[in-house]
């Protein structure tokens, strides 16, 4: 049986090179041309940033629409987008553009923001490294989870869904090799809705699901 290799990842934000957007029209222009890494960062990697409290939305576009553009309708439409439901970043981009176009068409003006409240387009450099930790059996997984950094949780449970096998977290992909013994754990992991959890809470939730009675 192959051991589970625990990786960790850390992220550093950098400017994307795109000018900031000071209005909804400018946001649309930049969304149409920004790199996939930019979209990825603002949709997926926001979880890696420490948050002060529970944000209303997990993607930066929805947060900006709410707090800076003061457009609640747009914020709600952006906010409900589940990035993991899209087959590709291009598909996600297309939906974003449709939402903005629809909003621009329905408003008598293009909303804009005050100086200092512009949307900045970032991307990130992520460094991934082996922690030297190995998990050899499904029963060891729960205790290993509590010692993992939030970076490891992000890499194996969330970011993994974008790697082959698609839409599957790394823990579940590894547990498959253990047959029936692994299936119970996979089922437990499948019940987790991570949409409204911080990474630290997600770590606790994974642990609690893996140690629930009957597993």
């Amino acid at each position: 049986m192959k051991p589970f290799v625990v990786m960790d990842c850390v992220l550093l934000t950098r400017m994307s090179g795109l000018p900031e957007a000071a209005s909804l029209r400018e946001l649309r222009e930049r969304l149409a041309v920004c790199g996939e890494n930019v979209l990825y960062h603002h949709f997926y990697e926001t979880l890696l940033r420490p948050s002060f409290d529970y944000p209303d939305y997990h993607n930066d576009f929805a947060v900006w629409a709410k707090l800076q553009l003061a457009d609640q309708v747009l914020a709600e439409r952006f906010g409900v987008l589940d990035p993991y439901a899209f087959a590709s970043m291009e598909e996600l981009r297309g939906v974003m553009l449709d939402i903005v176009d629809d909003r621009l068409n329905s408003l008598p003006y293009a909303p804009s923001v005050a100086k200092g409240a512009e949307f900045y387009f970032f991307e990130a450099t992520t460094v991934v490294f082996d922690t030297d930790v190995r998990i050899c059996a499904p029963e060891e997984l729960a205790s290993a989870i509590v010692r993992m950094t939030t970076g490891s949780i992000f890499f194996h449970f969330i970011e993994a869904r974008r790697r082959e096998p698609l839409a599957v977290d790394d823990f579940s992909a590894w547990l498959v090799q253990f047959g029936d013994k692994g299936s119970a754990f996979i089922e437990a992991l499948r019940t987790i809705d991570f949409s409204f959890l911080t990474l630290a809470e997600l770590r606790d939730e994974i642990h609690s699901q893996l140690t629930a009675p009957g597993i």
Partner: peptide
């Protein structure tokens, strides 16, 4: 310190890729 280390790894790798394995 962690962010400086990421930067160092990134520029020493000479790669412009968003993900670097070290």
């Amino acid at each position: 310190l962690r962010e400086y280390f990421i930067l160092f790894h990134s520029i020493l790798s000479g790669s412009n890729e968003p993900r670097i394995y070290v």
